[in-house]
């Protein structure tokens, strides 16, 4: 194992709507023997709502600089935070003038470009490694899973760390812990959940999320697995609203990949926040042997 300590960037939803992703990420890393040091006084990455790239770079320079002071690479469980951290890291490393400009705005934005930014999936599979994880597994998570990756894992090309059309990192973890990947879901793996339009064009967002839920259900999945809190809010948090608005019954449990992995590592379901997912996850717990 090549990694034993990382700076941890939880992202805003970790404090509210995606607290279960935060809880399970911390619990899993602890069990894997990797120390997470939360980026002190971290600020929002800008999400999808700050469109001006220069503002995004400045917001993330502060977070990167805090981790750099500790000389630690940054890991985040959120795909949007990852995209913003990574593209800012790339832009700041390549552009001396930009770094100078930001330093002039405030000394806390003084980042020298010496650390790496990573998504948890990337760290699990490519840094810690499947062999190492395998040696720590205590239980078999015997579930049929529709692995949903969303947008920022395989796209855009300069920040992607998996295949744009058929990403596989989550599939590998699910198979490792004894789960089964449902057939006929592959083409939905990276189709956007509609989350960015939830507040402004809820009708479109609901149609998009419903497609993913329907395909997972028709493929015979016991649950959908995710790696992004906005996807979680859309597919899990809003699922009952989608059912009501579109007059359909779905009832599809949606869990974060860190929650599934945590179960396989023998961590208490409550410590993984499995009582906090909006759609009940009790059936999934019954499949852990």
């Amino acid at each position: 194992m090549s990694v034993n300590k990382l700076a941890y960037y939880p992202g805003c939803p970790s404090e509210a709507t995606a607290i279960e992703q935060h809880m399970s990420t911390e619990a899993v890393f602890e069990k894997l023997g990797v120390e997470l040091v939360e980026v002190e006084d971290w600020n929002c990455c800008g999400a999808a709502e700050v469109e001006d790239p220069r503002v995004v770079y400045a917001l993330n320079a502060r977070n990167l600089a805090i981790a750099e002071k500790e000389d630690l690479d940054i890991v985040t469980p959120c795909s949007i935070c990852y995209y913003n951290l990574e593209r800012s890291n790339k832009a700041l490393r390549a552009d001396e003038a930009l770094r100078t400009k930001l330093r002039g705005i405030d000394s806390s934005l003084d980042y020298n470009g010496t650390i790496k930014t990573k998504h948890v999936l990337d760290v699990f599979v490519n840094d810690i490694g499947l062999d190492e994880i395998s040696s720590k597994l205590e239980k078999k998570v015997n579930v049929k899973v529709a692995p949903y990756y969303g947008c920022y894992i395989g796209r855009p090309p300069e920040t992607a760390f998996d295949d744009p059309d058929n990403p596989v990192l989550m599939d590998k973890l699910i198979e490792l812990i004894g789960g089964e990947i449902v057939p006929n879901f592959n083409y939905m793996k990276t189709v956007c959940c509609g989350g960015p339009l939830m507040m402004t064009r809820g009708d479109i967002a609901f149609d998009m999320a419903r497609k993913i839920l329907d395909v997972a259900k028709n493929a015979g999945a016991d649950c959908i697995s995710l790696a992004c809190p906005l996807c979680g809010m859309m597919l899990d948090g809003k699922q009952a609203d989608i059912e009501k608005a579109l007059d359909v019954t779905i009832g599809m449990p949606v869990v974060y990949i860190t929650q599934l992995l945590g179960l396989a590592l023998g961590i208490e379901p409550k410590k993984l926040g499995l009582n906090k997912n909006a759609v009940d996850t009790k059936e999934i717990l019954g499949m852990v042997v």
Partner: peptide
């Protein structure tokens, strides 16, 4: 212009 999701599928392809 305002219903683009910024999902990056177009950019990737």
């Amino acid at each position: 212009l305002w219903i683009c999701l910024i999902c990056q599928t177009c950019t990737a392809r």
